[in-house]
Every structure is written in structure tokens, then in C-alpha cells.
Design a protein around this nucleic acid. Structure first.
Lengths: 269, 269
DNA sequence: CGTATGCTTGAATCACGTCAACTGATGTGG
DNA sequence: CCACATCAGTTGACGTGATTCAAGCATACG
């Protein structure tokens, strides 16, 4: 639907496409749909024939343990993220996708993407790169959960959303909306809601940042990033990695496998 | 180098390609190289011009916190895994890649992959799907770290490697090599080496599985999988999702956004 | 040999979970 | 309009799972 395409803003992750690529993609949009909060978009294992681009709001991915009582949020998507793009090559997902807030979604049928891939393989590779940034974010989550403790984890989570929402043009002066309950944050950070509460009030008392009634206010971003051990490298901002054409290849010789160094063992753990 | 291509076995993840696709890819191989254990293959941020397919041995990906003393393993690669395939669209990595054991690697220059993508976009999409399975494994790690506690985590880790190595044709009767120190396992599972030790002896006493001198012996796989809350869905085994051509499309109507259901709140946490 | 590295075990500490009670905001039906 | 339920947030007391520090062994290696 071309009318729909005309209004699609190029925000967030989709900014990694060139304007021309974005036009090519937006032309494939099959419509826009509004969905209320706490609604299942796709259920684990269900076959997919369309992918969803998140225009605004928040969406979570959940894996739940059968025997256990808790489900865990393994990813959060913000405006500009392609929620289901990896469902395009895989044709089904291994987890549930649920809206955390009211959202608006742009729909892309897989057959339309097929044609896009055929007609414009360069844009296809750019879409591939988009899904790889998602994977890098997953690694960052793994790092957060495995290497940090409660206070740092929550700080890191907030710092990540500050960065990602900034890219989406949402929020300013360190203030942005985050309509999650403390239980949601706990599910994302591997903590109980009770402990998230304590950690948040600790961050508040430290004059670091405040999260109240669905709004984050960052008072001291330096301290937040430092506390969070936050390294934005995982986000692959900066150069357009979608552009694999040529130019920046072979300039620097890449890691030569002949000059390998022994991995220095680090102190503990 | 065609001689190198001739000896490349199609194991593990690379089995998700059709034999024809595998031949196409193997023909692009630029050589095979042996690398000793505990060697840095690629350093965070370094520009890449080739990708590596792991023929045997183990490789880990590490993210480390600057201020802190510990680095965290965010992924482990086994025989058949494409270690650096996501470095192909992205051109650099956000983490370090280190061998955990002596390995043999098949090298694929990015320009060769470029030609492959041009000549055979279908195989290109299959490679995309490979990187998406990696992402699914990342989500599984996130789940493990966020939702499970020590005993279950280690059990889950072992169950994952049992599954992945089985696909690579390594090990049988629940016995497979795993040349990791308890400190390595701790870095992967977000635990200290000391606690990994206690957990392993617990698993041993429970007659569940044994990990000694670099070898895993699974005595009661049912109990292991149950204890680990292990759901192999993340691995996308089964149907060849690389085959996006046609056939299995539009058979089932996919999740219709009109019959959305409200997300049922689960009990705790 | 001695030194380094990995595994094992114990005891003390601490971070986080669990249980429970209370608040305040929102909503619903009589 | 008020009784009542519900749900997110908050706080305290208590229990426990994991870390930390420490020491003792085993094996491999120069």
C-alpha cells in the first residue's frame, strides 16, 4: 500500500538503511495496524508469513520455562525495530512476542520481501545486517545477565534504552518514556520485582536516574554509564555497515591469522 | 582453493544448507588453518575481511567489563559453526573471539562471499538463516542466565552442548569431549569456578551426568533435560528453514493479527 | 625437582529471594 | 456515592544460594 509507505518515518534501526533502500522497503509495506498493550503478537512456533516493523511503543520477547513459574524477557523492541524480521528466513519463532504498551506496527508480507530480495540484493544484505545488530544486542543482554549484579544490571538496562530510544528520536535531555512495570524490568534483568524496586530507589538516592510512572529521568549520565559498565559498541552505531559494496574494504589488512597472540588469562571468575 | 573444498565435511550447522548449496560455498574456501588453544582469533573492533568456519575444536566469544575484573563468555562455537559469518555484513565485531582448544578453521574471504551472494542469492539467504540460529542460541543463553539458577544453568549448558555436538556428529551414547575448565564454564554460566565445581559434583552425585578431564558423560539424559528446563526449540532443528522458496508457505494462515489474545499474566517474578 | 594450573573442600559473608504487610491509585458495581 | 477489588509500588524481617577467602591436592611441565 503506497499510501502507508508514504507515512513511514525512517527512525531507529531502520536508519541503518540508505534513504533509497528505505524507500524500496517502505514501498512493500502492506499496511499499518494499532495493537493494545499486553497482547500476544506471535506465539512460539506459529508459522509466520509477515514481518512487523515497530513504529512506536514497546514489544517484548519471552521464553518461559515449562516446569517453572517464571517467564523471562529475552529482548525488548523499541520504535524503529523490525520485530519479526528474523521470522522471514526462519518462518517461525522460538519464543512469544508480546506488546508491552499500545503500539503501531507496519506489516510486511514475506512474499513482498521475497520480491525485494530478488530485485535489490543490496537492500537484502542491509536487512541481514539489521538482524545481526539484534544478535549483538542479545550478546549484550547475555553479558549484562552473566557479568553484572543487580544495581549495575538495571543501570545497564536503562542505559541501553537511553541509547536505543535516542536513535529512534524519542526522549531528550535524558528523559524518555519507559512504560514497564518493575516486574517487567525484573523479567528482563533476571531479578524479582521486589529487588528491582530496591535497586531503583538506590539509583534514585544516588542522584543517578529516576524511573517513576513510566518515565526515566537521567540526572547524571556519566555516572550511569560508568556504573552500568556500559559500552555502546554492541550497537554498531557509526559507520553504515549496510554498505558492504566496496570502498572501505582491504584498506586495513584485517586480522592476520599469522600474528595471533596468546589470550591473556584475566584475574578472577 | 578447490582442494581444500573437497575435504570440507558438511557437519553441524552447515547441514542446514542443501548439499548443492554446501558445494557452492565450499568452493569458495580460501584454505584451512590450524590454531592452538587459548589464541585470540579476532579482537573486538578490528576490521574483518574473512569469515571462519570451525571444522573442529571449540571457540568462545568474550565481552569484558572495563572497570570490572571479569570477562564473560557470550557464546561458544562448536564444529560446523560459522564463527565469523556475522562479521561479513557487519565488517567488524563487538567482542573478542578466542580458541578454547586447538582448532582447525576453514577461511572464507569476504569477496568470495560477495560473489556467492551475487551468483546464488538463495544460498545467501540460507547463510542469513544460519546467523539467525546463532541469534536464537543467544536468546537461549539469555534465558539460561536470567531464569535459571546455578544447578539448572550448568545442566542446561551441558544439555545444549550435547544437542549441538550431536548435530556435528561428535560424541555418542551421551559421551562427548568438552575441553573447558570449570572457570570457562563459570564464565559462560555467570558463576564462579568454585560454585561450578560444587554444582558439577552435585550433578555427579545425582547420577545425572559427569564432567571429568574434558569429557562429559550423560548418565540420565531425561533427568538432565528435565532439570535443565531444556527446550530444544531454540535450535530450529527439523525443517530446513533455509528453504524459503515456496511450497510450505501460505498453508497455514499464520498468526492473524485480528484474533489477538490478551497476554495471560503468569504467577510470579 | 619446583612451579604453575586446575580441581576440591570448608567457613564466613553478602547479595538476592521469599514472605508478608501496607500504601496509593484505579476501576467496578451496588 | 461508597464498599470493594485489583494492581503497582514500597518497605521490613528472614532465609538461602552464591561469592569470597583460604587451604590442601593432584597433575603437567620446564
Amino acid at each position: 500500500m503506497t499510501e502507508a509507505a508514504a507515512v513511514l518515518p525512517q527512525i531507529g534501526l531502520s536508519r541503518r538503511l540508505t534513504p533509497a533502500q528505505w524507500q524500496t522497503l517502505a514501498a512493500r509495506c502492506d499496511g499499518v495496524q494499532a495493537v493494545p498493550a499486553r497482547t500476544v503478537l506471535t506465539r512460539k512456533g506459529a508459522p509466520l508469513d509477515k514481518s512487523l516493523l515497530l513504529l512506536n511503543g514497546f514489544v517484548g520477547r519471552y521464553i518461559d520455562a515449562r516446569r517453572s513459574r517464571s517467564s523471562h524477557m529475552v529482548a525488548i523492541e523499541v520504535a524503529g525495530d523490525f520485530v519479526d524480521l528474523h521470522g522471514y528466513p526462519l518462518k517461525r519463532l522460538d519464543h512469544d512476542v508480546v506488546t508491552l504498551s499500545p503500539v503501531r506496527l507496519a506489516l510486511f508480507g514475506h512474499d513482498g520481501l521475497d520480491r525485494l530480495m530478488r530485485d535489490d540484493p543490496e537492500t537484502g544484505r542491509a536487512l541481514w545486517a539489521l538482524t545481526l545488530v539484534d544478535a549483538a544486542i542479545h550478546r549484550h543482554w547475555s553479558f549484562r545477565l552473566g557479568a553484572l549484579r543487580a544495581l549495575q544490571r538495571v543501570a545497564n538496562f536503562i542505559a541501553e534504552l537511553d541509547l536505543r530510544l535516542g536513535t529512534a528520536g524519542i526522549g531528550q535531555d535524558g528523559v524518555f518514556p519507559l512504560p514497564l512495570t518493575q516486574r517487567d524490568i525484573g523479567q528482563a534483568c533476571g531479578l524479582t520485582a521486589v529487588h528491582v524496586n530496591r535497586v531503583l530507589s538506590e539509583l534514585r538516592q544516588a542522584e543517578c536516574c529516576t524511573l517513576q510512572s513510566g518515565t526515566v529521568r537521567i540526572h547524571d549520565r556519566m555516572r550511569l554509564l560508568q556504573l552500568a559498565e556500559f559500552d555502546p559498541a554492541f550497537f554498531y552505531a557509526g559507520q553504515p555497515e549496510a554498505d558492504v559494496s566496496d570502498a572501505d574494504r582491504d584498506q586495513r589488512p584485517g586480522p592476520d591469522l599469522s600474528n595471533m597472540t596468546t589470550f591473556p588469562p584475566d584475574s578472577v571468575d
